[in-house]
Design a protein around this nucleic acid. Structure first.
Length: 295
DNA sequence: AATTTCATCAACCGCCAGGGA
DNA sequence: CTCCCTGGCGGTTGATGAAAT
């Protein structure tokens, strides 16, 4: 786990700014900026993010461009409300990994770490009891969640994890219903062109496979074990944006149906570390086909 | 109808790891 | 081996809109 704020800096010079302040725009992205970004990446790939803004004609920090692309404009982003399956997966993966949002996101194709982090903080975290054992009131959208671990299990789980990673614990918050974001201005604007094509690309690119998902949480006296449950069908998507864009372009030209049927897995044989193994595989094989060959 | 409160989420910030020179 | 650059990650902030008063 990364240690933040405790390691001394090796260099005394301080960190060079990633971009010249005052010369870059900050704040919300405009549809025009989105279009520039997507146009450039579609044609050329992103290359080095640091030099990307200049090449793409954007007055933005490269970091900001990368974030905008990976969290919002990437064609394989799945938007909208989280399904109960996804919620359960997040819950269980969070019990395994703590606030390792990237690790959790890697097992939820189409979801970004930022999205999952926000979802956790605004929806799921409140289901963890306070120190005094009380739960925050459930939101309208999360009241019907029978698949989640019982409250006392969650409490034990969090207690166990708190000992290991106290920094991962935060006071719970309350929040209202899940809201499907409607701020996708750019993709709405592009609803008949790239937005739609992206969506198609996403559909074509989806590869049906099954990943063992941690399900039941077994509680011992002072520890807990997460057992893998039924293999829920998930979609594997390209994590390499350049590769994804190339595929996207190719699909634009040859929009025939492409399906990669993976050998379905129905056994429960995978044990506690199955999700970690799967995670490693996903991380090691950003390309769908390569990964699936190992499934 | 106006105002206040609160939840959500896009975006920013700072740090770290890894790779290359 | 050291330094620098870049990408990536997690925590935090702030704008926005919905709900409550």
């Amino acid at each position: 786990m990364r240690k933040r704020g405790f390691q001394k800096k090796k260099k005394g010079m301080g960190r060079a700014p990633c971009c010249v302040k005052g010369e870059v725009k900050k704040g919300a992205w405009t549809p025009e900026e989105d279009k520039l970004l997507v146009d450039y990446i579609t044609k050329n790939g992103h290359g080095t993010w640091r030099s990307f803004p200049e090449l793409a004609g954007l007055r933005r920090c490269g970091k900001s461009c990368r974030l905008r692309w990976t969290n919002y404009l990437r064609p394989d982003i799945k938007r909208g409300a989280f399904s109960s399956e996804e919620e359960e997966t997040i819950f269980n993966l969070h019990s395994l990994h703590g606030n390792k949002w990237a690790a959790i996101a890697s097992q939820l194709p189409g979801r970004t770490d930022n999205e999952i982090k926000n979802f956790w903080n605004s929806h799921l975290r409140k289901r963890i009891p306070n120190k005094n054992g009380t739960l925050h009131p459930p939101s309208k959208s999360t009241e019907k969640k029978p698949t989640l671990p019982p409250t006392h299990q969650v409490a034990d789980l969090e207690d166990a994890r708190e000992e290991e990673m106290p920094e991962a614990m935060d006071p719970a918050l309350s929040s209202p219903a899940t809201v499907i974001s409607d701020s996708d201005n750019f993709l709405n604007d592009w609803g008949s062109s790239d937005g739609e094509t992206f969506q198609k690309h996403m559909d074509f690119e989806k590869v049906q496979c099954e990943i063992p998902t941690p399900r039941a949480i077994k509680f011992e006296s002072d520890s807990y074990t997460v057992h893998t449950g039924p293999h829920i069908p998930v979609t594997s998507t390209s994590e390499s944006c350049n590769q994804g864009v190339k595929e996207h372009i190719r699909l634009k030209e040859e929009p025939e149906e492409i399906t990669h049927a993976a050998e379905p897995q129905s056994s429960y044989e995978a044990e506690n570390d199955a999700s970690d193994i799967t995670l490693d595989l996903l991380l090691d094989f950003p390309n769908d086909g390569e990964y699936l060959e190992y499934v």
